[in-house]
């Protein structure tokens, strides 16, 4: 199984990056997880020609080619970081690779809540019709106190958290298989092209 892991932070040091690196290595026997950074993407700005900048196109191509996507989000001010939001806006405004793509949400935070509010927002955002990601329901993986959660060699040091993550990931593997099976005959071309209300804003409501 080929998966993409999106690091939802543009910070130099990010425990969400560490979390994905851990997953990449820990689940290497079950899936090939390719980590993608958003930190070098430009800020979203509604380009008139609706073409994706190179970095966004590369990310989009990787998502298209993957069986599923894992997003690891920090929490800034009860929501996802602007940098992650910007990346999502690019995808929804240009290529829409997340339509029907199975998505797993994880997150790490320095405090005790483990990015819970950001994850709830991210679910609602990815559920918008212009994104239409197939988010794995119910399971959530929240890693609190993330600054002390990883050993020097990148291992997650709490065995109960490792077990929880293993259970979530096993479920996601099933979810990816089932979702892709279920949706394999759906034609999404039309949706990739459809105009959504917020983008019409930029054109003064004109198509």
């Amino acid at each position: 199984m080929k998966l993409i892991g999106i690091v939802g932070s543009n910070a130099t040091n990010s425990t969400n990056r560490q979390l994905l690196q851990f997953m990449q290595q820990h689940f290497s026997d079950q899936a090939e997880i390719d980590l993608c950074e958003i930190k070098d993407l430009p800020a979203f700005n509604e380009p008139a020609d609706k073409t994706a900048p190179t970095g966004v196109q590369l990310l989009s191509d990787k998502i298209m080619a993957a069986d599923g996507v894992i997003v690891s989000t920090p929490e800034y001010d009860h929501s996802i970081p602007a940098a992650l939001k910007s990346a999502i806006e690019w995808l929804s405004y240009t290529t829409r690779p997340l339509i029907d793509k199975p998505v797993m949400i994880v997150g790490a935070s320095h405090g005790s809540l483990g990015s819970s509010r950001a994850q709830a927002h991210l679910r609602q955002i990815l559920d918008a019709p212009e994104l239409k990601a197939r988010i794995m329901p119910s399971d959530e993986f929240l890693l609190g106190h993330s600054l002390t959660a990883f050993a020097e060699d990148g291992q997650l040091i709490y065995p109960e958290k490792v077990q929880e993550l293993e259970e979530c990931f096993a479920e996601f593997v099933d979810f990816v298989t089932l979702t892709n099976e279920l949706l394999k005959n759906r034609h999404v071309n039309a949706e990739h092209q459809r105009q959504f209300s917020w983008e019409l804003d930029a054109n003064g409501g004109q198509n």
Partner: peptide, 15 residues
């Protein structure tokens, strides 16, 4: 409203 939430530009300012 962008994708059921505020724009990244506004979020960035608030951050």
């Amino acid at each position: 409203e962008h994708n059921h939430s505020i724009s990244s530009a506004l979020k960035s300012l608030l951050e």
